[in-house]
Write a protein that binds this DNA or RNA. Structure first.
Lengths: 156, 156
DNA sequence: CCTATTTAGTTTCATTTGAAACCAGTTTGA
DNA sequence: TCAAACTGGTTTCAAATGAAACTAAATAGG
């Protein structure tokens, strides 16, 4: 009997996930970049502020799974371009509240349909049930991998 | 009517994919790293050589979806550690054939079960059909995203 | 209170990544 | 047959990423 009876790279979920995520990400990131020169973190930040209103950097990080360094840099860049404003956080002076400016909101309204269109294009051959199923499986996989990994390093 | 009726970050497949892939990748990469200080590209290279035998860097790149720069670096690192050997490529002097050494093969036999175990741990709550379904959906998404994106840049 | 510890966010630094330039060998076609 | 164009692989450079150090404010415990 072989010592590793059943390892096949092509069936290895972490590999398939990584390859699929990269391909999809490249395609969709091109849309943000071309339309408003936004990076993925910048786009996530805009999207989450549009959905949830003003948030602290910390809350943004929790919500979008982004590192605090990534959030910090994305917000600086959006601040400089006037897409985002910051207001003091009354309950904590170390922090602040980020929110979309009018131009930030209009960027959101321009880019969101674009992002959806790229997604649709990629998922063209997928039935609604398949899309639903993919979403749920991804969320579960993420949750499972996160708990399995959080032993290794402190909570973000 | 709202200008962007249905964009929700939490339902955006590229976002879910990216987050899930990162979480899973972090967990599984820790296994390679701890056991033999292998990076993900290095592990992919070992795995594919174990499965397919000697290959040129180009073939490895096609097979594993890795950039030629990434393949080059991974092979240098594995060469230095004696896990991989290179032989001249009789049909093309610019190229060469990479293959696993005995110690490279034994690394494979050690790490493969480990990788499988991490995968199992993550997919613990998944039924076989769910795993199968996830695999197929990921492969299809990757394929769709790749064609949708290849217009933008030349073939690798 | 007031010091010690913790926490939010930024900055700095090292690592990873891939695009572009590069080198050497191969193919094309005049 | 030999120059031009092309291709496989490496090197160099710039951008992205995140860990660790840092700063300033908040909280805990005496």
């Amino acid at each position: 009997m072989s010592p590793t009876p059943d390892f096949r790279l092509d069936d290895f979920i972490p590999y398939l996930l990584s390859v699929a995520a990269n391909a999809v990400s490249d395609a969709v990131a091109a849309a943000y970049r071309i339309s408003h020169d936004l990076s993925t973190p910048e786009w996530r930040l805009i999207a989450v502020l549009a959905e949830d209103g003003g948030l602290t950097p910390q809350a943004i990080g929790r919500r979008t799974r982004m590192d605090k360094v990534t959030v910090s840099r994305a917000s600086v860049s959006l601040l400089e371009r006037g897409f985002v404003r910051r207001a003091p956080n009354p309950v904590d002076q170390r922090s602040h509240i980020l929110s979309l400016s009018a131009s930030g909101l209009s960027v959101y309204h321009e880019v969101a349909p674009l992002a959806l269109r790229v997604q649709e294009q990629i998922l063209e051959g997928f039935s609604p049930q398949e899309i639903e199923s993919l979403s749920r499986l991804l969320v579960r996989a993420e949750a499972a991998a996160t708990v399995s990994d959080e032993s290794r390093k402190a909570t973000r």
